[in-house]
């Protein structure tokens, strides 16, 4: 897949949908395109986070370790972004991300991510929306888990 295709893909992601193409090109160009084999970890809970991942192809599981062992709390697939929390608020990784099958991602460094957010307030709003949605979802899941 070439840079231009990556830019098209990024544009379909709500987070980036309102950003001009040349900036998306910078984002894509300055990001590493990585392949994770099935079962490998994109990041591990507790590690220092320096990048977020945009999933281009495949799906990943989000796993949190609890006193009762690892619990799979969510899944992310194409066009989703994972790992952004650790780079947004300087906390260690809050979850482990595992590739469910071979996964293609764009690795966006913290530095680049901040530059984009700073420059495009619209992106910040999208991130807030995304985070809020996710919070709502995880809260729901938590409630269900507690009730069951």
């Amino acid at each position: 897949m070439s840079l231009n295709e990556e830019v098209d893909l990024l544009r379909r992601i709500p987070l980036f949908s309102n950003i001009e193409p040349s900036k998306l090109k910078l984002l894509a160009f300055a990001s590493e395109r990585l392949t994770f084999r099935e079962g490998t970890e994109l990041c591990r809970q507790g590690d220092v986070g320096d990048s977020a991942y945009i999933i281009i192809e495949g799906s990943v599981g989000i796993v949190v370790s609890t006193p009762n062992g690892d619990a799979r709390v969510a899944e992310a697939r194409e066009n989703d972004i994972v790992g952004e929390i650790a780079i947004l608020c300087d906390v260690p990784r809050t979850a482990t991300v595992v590739a469910d099958r071979d996964v293609e991602v764009l690795k966006i460094s913290k530095e680049l991510f901040f530059r984009m957010v700073e420059e495009f307030p619209r992106m910040a709003v999208e991130i807030m929306r995304e985070l809020a949605t996710r919070l709502e979802r995880t809260t729901g899941q938590l409630t269900r888990t507690l009730n069951s």
Binding site: S22, K25, L26, F29, A30
Partner: peptide, 19 residues
């Protein structure tokens, strides 16, 4: 492409030097 991507990036920015 280089001009398009990097035109607005300050010349001393790390992005520039790295990519």
């Amino acid at each position: 492409t280089m001009v398009e991507i990097f035109a607005d990036v300050p010349p001393d920015h790390e992005l520039f030097q790295r990519y």
